[in-house]
Computed example of a mutant assay.
Amino acid sequence: MTQTVEPAHPAYAIPAALRGPDWRNPYAHIPPLDVFAWSADKNGCGFYRTQLPMQGLAALGYATHHATRLPQPVRHNRDVIVIGQRVCDPNPSIMWQQLASEGRHLIYEVDDDLFTVDHRSPAAHQYYGRPEVRDNIRRNIEVATAATVTTEPLADIVRQWNPNVHVIPNAVPDWLIDHQVPQPDDGTITIGWGGSATHGMDWDHTGQQIRRLLQREPSTVLHCIGNDYGALLKAPHRRFTPWQQSVEDYYRAIDYTIGVIPLLPHLFNVAKSAIKATEAAALGIPVVASAVRPYEDFVQDGTTGYLVRRDHEWASALRALIHEPDMRTEMGLAAREQARRYTLSAIAPLWEKALTA
């Protein structure tokens, strides 16, 4: 967790050599704001739930800013709406409660069920399993004006503490719809996945099915981005790309022919969003995904990809897409058309509604 409260900066803390016309105001670079998003991190979650929404609201005419620190001008300007992403550390929670006591317009943003993090994600499980952290989450949701979440199952959880919950799906940048994924001209079929090290339980459950398919299909290669589950599986044909400097760079590293999205039926996963399928759809990539709630709600089985309900279906679904290029193309086009409903310009009005409802 990197979310912090920014301390007051005395004027004498600014070196004389750096003092410009407004040197007495160390926040002169921050324009007057309508909305400030207090990000919990600078990773994918921060991008999808604070950075990208602020871009969408800016396109609608709002003055926006986002950072992992709460700047003093935002702290003292009662007109600024503050969106707090997963505020739960001690000092940020104290500040959140103080802002609430002043009658500030606060929106609590959360995109995961933080009360059911699996032990196979040890760092997150250890942190969010702490009673004081869970208590802070509950209290901070309770005092917020509203809350925003990614899915309806997650909304049902958050409504225990605040009835004013807005379900806002993750969006992708509009330009992604027109981005062309590079494909090799040697007949290689790239089966791809991207994500963090928190998906161990998903690959433990499904990985061997994918590994056997790779063994039987010599034209295939498994490309993992972010965390190298291919190496853990000892997949026979594999490539690995580490996390990129930005989410945009991550998009450009995607060269999948087919996307795979294993997801274990687990309470934590039921409340997750379908962002991996949304990314693939925007890029025109058909997917084979576990038939778990996020993907049941997004993937149109047999039209934009396949949903897997039994272990043996991984091989049959992947084999069909490997050997039928026309079907791959048709499914990719249908997926891309579906993804237009999840672009930033399409989803931004939902963020605006959350600000005003």
Rank of each mutant, 00 (worst) to 15 (best):
A274V: 12
R216Q: 12
L176Q: 03
K353W: 06
N162K: 09
A40D: 03
F298Q: 09
H76F: 13
V292P: 00
Q72L: 14
V270S: 08
L70F: 15
R328N: 07
L70V: 15
P71E: 09
Y108D: 00
E217Y: 04
I258E: 02
D34N: 14
P286R: 10
S39D: 08
N227Q: 13
D301G: 07
G187D: 04
A13G: 02
E296P: 02
T4K: 07
G192Y: 05
E102N: 00
I137D: 03
Y108T: 07
L214Q: 01
A11V: 01
L99H: 03
D202Q: 10
N269A: 13
H223W: 05
L318R: 00
H312D: 13
V82R: 13
N269E: 12
W193M: 00
R238C: 02
I261D: 10
R310W: 08
Q338E: 04
T150G: 03
H65S: 14
Q85P: 02
N136A: 14
A335V: 02
L176G: 01
T64F: 14
I285Y: 02
A315H: 12
D301V: 11
I275W: 03
A339E: 02
R134S: 06
A291M: 03
I168V: 07
H29M: 13
V133R: 06
S345G: 12
I83F: 12
W314A: 05
A339V: 11
L307T: 03
E330D: 07
I347D: 04
A354V: 06
C45K: 04
P15I: 01
F240W: 01
E296L: 15
L264A: 12
V167A: 04
G61Y: 13
H312P: 07
R139L: 11
Y295D: 07
A339G: 01
P32M: 08
P262T: 05
Q208E: 12
L333A: 15
I347H: 03
D255Y: 04
V270Y: 06
P21L: 09
L60R: 14
H166T: 13
D34A: 14
W38P: 01
Q85Y: 12
N77W: 10
Q126S: 10
D41M: 00
R104E: 07
H266I: 00
D311K: 10
E330T: 10
P7A: 13
P265D: 13
F240E: 00
S219P: 02
G56A: 08
V308G: 06
A16N: 01
R69F: 11
A171C: 04
V143A: 10
D204R: 04
A67H: 12
S93K: 11
H66F: 15
L264M: 13
Y127G: 03
A277Y: 05
D297S: 05
S39V: 11
L154M: 08
I168S: 00
E6P: 00
I322Y: 08
Q209P: 12
R75H: 05
A28M: 10
